[in-house]
Write a protein that binds this DNA or RNA. Structure first.
Length: 580
RNA sequence: UACCCGGUGGUGUAAUUGGCAACACUACGGAUUUUGGUUCCGUUAUUCCAGGUUCAAGUCCUGGCCGGGUAACCA
């Protein structure tokens, strides 16, 4: 069990926990919780929080609860509860029997509210929402006390009882904490703790018409669950005094709230509101569109839970508001799949090759290694014949320097097969476009090396025309074309930065026969191209559809892109380098 | 405008809590390679600024600058 030899380098939350464990603050216990509101789909930012909370529990032999913060029935729904549970499970975390809902505690929360009233720390306010806002004041304007602030405990108790019993209309009254209308912290200016909402709750139905507010409910739920470290994002920092206030006034078990910076990623958006608008405006096909940063989207795209967890581990946890480059996510995926994915040959943009000196009816089976990173993955047979398809981009009539692939008169190696030489090209009579290559092979090079030891720099992939299987391939790119989609010109919104090429569908691809019944759960590497998986929804035997999860690193593409502006002066404006 | 929180290479996170600024990713250069993949090697910082305390400051103090957050009967 010596996986980590060097100093583990604790993040600041771990530092706090270890300190607490040393001082015995929570008797060495670690109890966390992941508290989503069931009003939307989880995204990669939530994954950071999930990994943090469950990860901490795991690391310190504690427990992490899954608790739905369902205190606002207007926005919440079981649909979201189910998808969130599914996502957390998919990521690989287990809350065992500890699935909770804030609504499980409604009765207890109500009793806490009653106690607060009895202690003279809460009152029923009959101001309208607008009046409350007006009374609250502003940043440099003190608030004014509500005229209802001094109601007696008896009166408040009676009113609150009648609120619960449904005697009043929505908005007629609220229960407010009695704190300090002059506080520089707006959250302490007599915050609302209960409001009347005549809405059916997805779990409690119509048994309640008053619902607790987040600030009141959250800390008390944490307390009831004996949470030790209540981890939330930075924007709740100003809520901590209020979190502490309720716990102190009620003299109950007191967890510690700790805030961390939420995740930001380049080339995407992670706000629930923006994600919803992308779905509603039809910019994506749905929450599970493979370009979406949602967990369902990443999952459909083909990201593995292992890669996402590794990513969350690598980005660390801090209080500094940072933006992580998406390449980190891609890199985590590449690292995972390089190790695990079987290699296959697939041609995305086919160009026909006829090997003139190869016997007309001959078919050979050639051995191909499944995964050079994993000997246990074994090998398979690839059918080879006179007519093949190769990648269009692997042939150029007039190749630039350092192009190692096929060109008239040049020789390349066909992976696992033979050396192939291009003798001539066949053109479409109308367009002049190259539609076929006439080639010859060297029978002495079977397996890919020559007895005379001559060097062939390039190796290209191929499929046998008679044996390959047609497929559709969906190439995904960043949803946005700018690193920070929120940066827009006056009068525009973030959708102005959408990448028009974020999805390219190729309908005429050819893949090797072993893929004809591929399991969508299996990720494969199309050699020299990228990592792919069959789309779990649209793909089926006979009509294969593959999603590109991520490309392979492509130094040639990078090379030709960087050299282009210098060498050829007819490049179109060049890729603008990212501004600093 | 008030309050709160932050500021370490292109990016993110460290720094034994006052002791020679480290690790990872990217970028660039090179080696290996039957994937232009993988792997390996190399290159990039007066720690936001200015003062102060100290033998010694990224760490402590003072002032400034910059960034983020906050005024829902949302979470």
């Amino acid at each position: 069990m010596t996986d980590e030899t060097a100093t583990p380098a604790l993040n600041f939350v771990q530092t706090i926990i270890e300190h607490d464990n040393q001082t015995g603050k929570f008797e060495g216990r670690v109890q966390t919780r992941f508290p989503p509101e069931p009003n939307g789909y989880l995204h990669i930012g939530h994954a950071k929080s999930i990994c943090l909370n469950f990860g901490l529990a795991e690391r310190y032999n504690g427990q992490c609860n899954l608790r739905f913060d369902d205190t606002n029935p207007e926005k919440e729904d079981v649909e979201y509860v189910d998808s969130i549970k599914d996502d957390v499970r998919w990521l690989g975390f287990d809350w065992q029997e500890r699935l909770f809902f804030a609504s499980d505690y409604y009765e207890q929360l109500h009793d806490f509210a009653v106690q607060l009233i009895e202690k003279g720390k809460a009152y029923v306010c009959s101001l309208s929402a607008e009046e409350v806002r007006e009374h609250r004041g502003g940043w440099n304007k003190e608030g004014r006390n509500s005229p209802y602030r001094e109601r007696t405990a008896e009166e408040n108790l009676d009113l609150f009882r009648r609120m619960r019993e449904g005697e009043f209309d929505e908005g007629a009254h609220t229960l407010r904490a009695k704190i300090d209308m002059a506080s520089p912290n707006m959250n302490l200016r007599d915050p609302t703790i209960y409001r009347i909402r005549r809405v059916t709750h997805h779990r409690t139905g119509d048994t309640w018409c008053i619902y607790p507010m987040y600030d009141f409910a959250h800390g008390l739920c944490d307390s009831l669950e004996k949470v030790t470290h209540s981890i939330c994002t930075l924007e709740f920092e100003h809520h901590r005094p209020l979190y502490d206030w309720f716990l102190d006034q009620l003299e109950v078990y007191h967890p510690q709230q700790i805030e961390f910076a939420r995740l930001n990623l380049t080339y995407t958006v992670l706000s629930k509101r923006k994600l919803i608008s992308l779905v509603q405006a039809g910019h994506v096909s749905g929450w599970d569109d493979p370009r979406m940063p949602t967990l369902v989207g990443l999952r459909r795209r083909g990201y593995t839970p292992e890669a996402i967890r590794d990513f969350c581990e690598r980005i660390g946890v801090a209080k500094f508001n940072s933006t992580i480059e998406t390449t980190w996510l891609e890199d985590a995926l590449r690292q995972d799949l390089n190790r695990r994915a079987c290699r296959v040959l697939a041609v995305l943009r086919p160009l026909k090759v006829v090997i003139e000196n190869y016997p007309e009816d001959q078919v050979e089976q050639l051995e191909a290694i499944n995964n050079p990173e994993d000997a246990a993955a074994g090998s398979r047979q690839l059918p080879f014949s006179r007519e093949l398809y190769i990648e269009r981009s692997d042939f150029m009539e007039d190749p630039p320097k350092k192009y190692f692939r096929l060109a008239p008169g040049r020789e390349v190696r066909l992976r696992y097969a033979y050396y192939l030489k291009c003798e001539s090209v066949v053109r479409d009579e109308q367009s002049g476009e190259v539609i076929e290559l006439r080639c010859t092979y060297d029978p002495a090079t079977r397996g890919g090396s020559s007895p005379d030891g001559r060097k062939v720099k390039g190796t290209i992939h191929w499929v046998s025309a008679a044996h390959c299987v047609p497929a559709e391939v969906r190439l995904y790119d960043h949803l946005f074309q700018t690193p920070d989609p929120n940066k827009v010109e006056e009068g525009q919104d973030f959708t102005a930065n959408l990448n028009p090429h974020s999805l390219e569908v190729l309908t005429d691809c050819r893949v090797e026969p072993s893929l004809s019944d591929v399991d969508p759960e299996q990720r494969v590497q199309f050699e020299r191209t990228g990592y792919f998986r069959a789309d779990p929804i649209d793909s089926r035997p006979g009509k294969l559809v593959f999603n590109r999860i991520v490309t392979l690193r492509d130094t040639w593409a990078k090379l030709s892109r960087n050299k282009a502006p210098k060498a050829g002066n007819k490049s179109k404006g060049g890729q603008k380098k990212q501004a600093k």
